[in-house]
Design a protein around this nucleic acid. Structure first.
Lengths: 208, 208
DNA sequence: GTCTATAAATGGATAGAC
DNA sequence: GTCTATCCATTTATAGAC
């Protein structure tokens, strides 16, 4: 049961953080929800930040997987679609991190470094994909434009859920889909005319 | 001196919120910093949220001004540049709002509504500018692409400073300039070849 | 491993004197 | 308008029994 309680605390914390925001959920709230004592919680974790760090480890592994290149061949537009799905769903499952990103990272140097590493990986991946599309002549983009688009992609992915929440979007699944479409539409003006029209049709079908 | 103390509290709060983040600055901290008593602070403001709301009023007026259309004529690329300056500098001066945007808005329904209004205004403005460029044949963009680009612009402007902070950018002035360039580069692929090269040269000169 | 009880510290807020 | 003193509620964290 030892391992079990530890896992239950992590699962419950994640659910509560995501639902109510990390700052408003205290260790007592978590213990209450699980119907265990605060002392028990502190037997398993040094403090709240310890819980967050363990959750971050889960998140990190998941995101590393989502950011891995699919396989050997160069990716086309459909592969990008799929990979964006993996990334956005990971972000959704750990959205409490993104909701109060600066506040959480400012309190913990280790997480700051680990998050920066993930951002770097995502940036590399975005560059690789853009360069791939450019070499395959699917898009036409200067190096500086690729840099800008990659950065733009990172900002969109990182903060899209926050933006959707501020707008008051209710439907969660739709928010994720909208985020993916938003990133795809980022590529639209780089495409040649035929693909450009094609993508616009696809995204419209996807959004409705 | 009554009005004076009230203003000093607001000024000091803004500076401390921006420097340390709103969640970590308590009413006691503010009173300490000003070398007044907590009781005095509570004479002038009902609570911390009251202070934030007053600061928001200042912010709101400033942003409304920054978002106003320059004048009668249709704006060119240079006017956009200027307007982005006004917007980003407003965001910078009230960056504490953006740092913990969801947390702050989740606690206060009135601010949520007021912020949504500003976002709407910004969206309208972005659309108007994009349509203007399109009609003047400076850019080539389908309606769906204009929608996506306007949304993209809003997300970039809203969260750019957060992104810069996570990356570890130190130089504040440069972070603002980078944000403006990032938005301008968003337009790049929509431009015709001559202007596209021109913009890439401009942004490079601006960034170095 | 888990509980009860509680310490220690902090933050928000008010009463009443000056 | 401003200060001192203080209260209440909350949160983190630990000690010690079972």
């Amino acid at each position: 049961m030892a391992r079990d309680t530890r896992q239950r605390i992590l699962d419950c914390s994640l659910a509560m953080f995501n639902a109510q925001g990390e700052p408003t959920v205290t260790t007592n709230h978590i213990a209450d929800e699980l119907e265990i004592s605060p002392g028990n919680l502190y037997y398993h974790f040094r403090n709240k930040d310890d819980i967050i760090e363990q959750l971050f480890t889960r998140y990190e592994a998941r995101m590393d997987e989502a950011l891995a290149p699919p396989d050997g061949r160069l990716p086309g537009l459909e592969d990008i679609w799929l990979q964006l799905h993996l990334v956005f769903e990971c972000i959704w499952d750990y959205r409490f991190l993104y909701r109060d990103l600066l506040e959480i990272l400012s309190r913990n140097r280790r997480l700051r470094i680990r998050f920066a590493r993930i951002l770097k990986r995502a940036d590399d991946r975005a560059h690789a994909v853009m360069r791939g599309l450019s070499q395959a002549d699917v898009i036409r983009a200067a190096p500086a434009e690729i840099d800008a688009a990659a950065t733009n992609l990172l900002v969109l992915a990182t903060f899209w859920l926050n933006y959707a929440a501020i707008r008051g979007d209710r439907d969660e699944q739709k928010a994720i889909r909208d985020g993916i479409v938003q990133v795809m539409m980022l590529l639209s003006p780089f495409l040649r005319d035929a693909e450009r029209v094609h993508l616009n049709r696809l995204t419209r079908a996807y959004t409705d």
